[in-house]
Design a binder for these strands. Structure first.
Ligand code: ZN
Ligand code: ZN
Lengths: 400, 400
DNA sequence: AAACATGTTT
DNA sequence: AAACATGTTT
């Protein structure tokens, strides 16, 4: 099925109709809210995972968050969909270590991905964050990938267990369905694990419809919930985003981020009973390092509906259900690597930590040479070459 | 229960929030759409009904619509509710005979009614119609009366029977419940019978919640249905009105008007499952001549829901249902008169047809004298005196 | 028309 | 938690 015809659609977003603030680039609504102090990784140990182009130390997850670092919280980033005034309810709270060493970016970039040049709306960005790094990318494109891969940073997400063991708890997570059942507007703690965390990493959360007939459409709030007089819409810029990131909590084992779903799965003229998933991507500078997907149902009775769906699954009726309305129940199976490529795995980024300026320059020059030698001619090669030349210029390579 | 505190509420209407057109008098959205040629009454015969102040001929209903006359169609008239920017989803298609004889208005006016001076928004009015006659009145006040009375003009309304005898017809009418069950947006023909029709008469339709806790609130469309990109909202001025009058059909027995309900009874943030009724008032110059009330449920399955409610009624569960959600099931019982008063029945208007200018003036002078003699001192008396003096001025009473 | 889906009331 | 209310799918 070809969904690229969405490029020619005349879709408009309700925020325009309702006179919500829209800048010259309405698709980009990136936001950074004030930082929260967290802990940096104390030491780096050799990495595990993809060997190519990687020279890096590893830090165990137990040690990962023991220092002080900032966890930046970035708000929904709509994607560039190639047609006017259409946005996506996406959220990506970036995790940033502020005291990281300088690193050389050894990047493999998927030339086939729907990559959109970075642009930002200044008024959506917190000045403390170098938001030029947060870009539209394949995670926010018209048809975001739902392929799960943990990547070299062993990216995992886990829904925290609710403390309410009654049958009226605000959320329940079905392991067998890999599906979150949650009431509208209730915070759910999501726990992210990342090995070898880097200061520039962040997690992006993008809502996507499971049904291929809808998965090229952005997940936006319904007209009812868009009412500007809704208490929860006051003093909030992204009232059209279904996924809202409410804050984040530091921890020693993982980073916990609170997400709330601001529409029901049944919301009329909104999600409209379509199956929904959240795609979490671990990213750096717009490159996807890992991806996790969780199906979500936002409903009034999470317990009842979870029981019904699990019963249906066990009765073998799941296939009909999942194919039609819910989409594939987001297999928990994980591939450690992203799709392979002549020049190495795509869509991933690796970092070579160095603790002095001279070595940094030496490694950057080597990386530049490798790109010039190994990359096929094309825009990707040019971008990568520019990257290293920019680094070398900055580091005073111009001096001699 | 005292509902007058609604006067102090800070309610606002969604049309303001959504930036819909709102004139300096947002409560008044009177509209007249182009006239439809119908038939005038061929002759006048003596009247039946309330004797006081009535000198008039009667025309049988069979003869009533045999000539040519215009049936004006007027759109929802919001009421003045005594607080800012609140409007009511009201509709009143006026029936006007264009070739009627001049008449003296012998009016009894209820001094206790919440009468609001007439004002109009020029751009809402069809120029062919003297819209200064269509006013805010007690039918559009904060707490419109739901008392049924046929009045001296024997005002009756009847829901046309659907031609679709399947169980999926667009509407069904329950006689026992006096309740219309209708799908959203589907036209329902309402048949109005009026004895002794006068060219200035019209029918107003106002939606009202049956539950006293809500009956002082206007019946407005929900945010979902207010979307300006809804096809049915294009080129329509009153998208916030639940009751839409789609046209009217001449007939020899009665006037048929098509009404469509533009929200479901279940619409979130709108009717929100509250019981609803339509109050039809036969009026002239803002005076109420008769009133009929029909309960309405706008739903996806009119047949099923009618059966369920009728079954509930027969099981004696109706009382609980009706009191709580549906309100009194709008008794079909009818009183021919409106509440009595020392100077005669209130809220009704009678017409003395005369076929020459001189007699018209004589009768008007007599009416003036009667008002001066019998009416208690007060604003009502002043208004009535002004009315007759205005008539006499117009008829050249000034000449001598 | 019956079964189902899904929010609300009891 | 079960029953009910009410839109949708079969
Ligand atoms: Zn919603
Ligand atoms: Zn509605």
């Amino acid at each position: 099925m070809d969904h690229t015809n969405g490029l020619n659609s005349n879709e408009t977003t309700p925020d325009n109709r309702l006179g919500l603030p829209s800048g010259p680039l309405p698709n980009d609504q990136s936001l950074l809210i004030p930082d929260v102090v967290m802990h940096p990784p104390p030491r780096l140990t050799p990495p595990v995972g993809h060997p190519s182009l990687v020279h890096q130390n590893e830090v165990s997850l137990h040690q990962q968050f023991q220092g002080n670092y900032y966890l930046h919280h970035q708000q929904p980033n709509p994607h560039n969909q190639g047609f006017p005034v259409s946005s996506q309810g996406a959220q990506y709270p970036p995790m940033m270590l502020q005291n990281g060493n300088p690193s050389i970016l050894m990047n493999t970039f998927n030339p086939m991905a729907n990559y959109t040049p970075a642009y930002q709306q200044a008024d959506n960005c917190n000045s403390e964050f170098n938001n030029s790094r947060i870009v539209e990318n394949q995670a926010t494109c018209e048809l975001p990938s739902m392929e799960v891969f943990t990547g070299n940073y062993d990216f995992h997400v886990n829904v925290a267990r609710t403390l309410d063991d009654s049958k009226r708890s605000a959320w329940e997570f079905s392991e067998v369905l890999n599906k979150l059942f949650v009431m509208e507007g209730r915070n759910v703690p999501m726990q992210f694990k990342v090995k070898n965390i880097n200061p520039s990493m962040y997690v992006r959360a993008v809502g996507i419809y499971c049904d291929p007939d809808s998965s090229n459409k952005p997940v936006l709030r319904c007209p009812n919930h868009l009412r500007v007089d809704e208490p929860l819409n006051i003093d909030y810029k992204f009232i059209d985003h279904v996924i809202r990131c409410n804050n984040q909590q530091p921890g020693s084992e993982y980073v916990t981020v609170l997400y709330a779903m601001m529409c029901r799965s049944s919301c009329i003229s909104g999600i409209n009973r379509r199956g929904l998933a959240i795609v979490f991507t671990l990213e750096i500078e717009g490159r996807v390092l890992g991806r996790q997907v969780i199906a979500v149902r936002v409903c009034a009775s999470p317990h009842r509906d979870r029981m019904l769906e699990e019963r249906r699954l066990s009765k073998g009726e799941a296939s009909a259900l999942l194919v039609k309305n819910e989409g594939p129940s987001v297999p928990n199976g994980v591939s450690a690597d992203s799709p392979s490529d002549p020049i190495g795995p795509l869509d991933q980024m690796y970092f070579v930590p160095v603790n002095n300026c001279d070595d940094y320059v030496v490694l950057a020059r080597l990386a530049l040479d490798l790109v010039k030698k190994d990359y096929p001619e094309g825009p990707v090669k040019e971008i990568e070459i520019q990257r290293y030349q920019s680094i070398l210029n900055t580091m005073g390579e111009n001096q001699h």
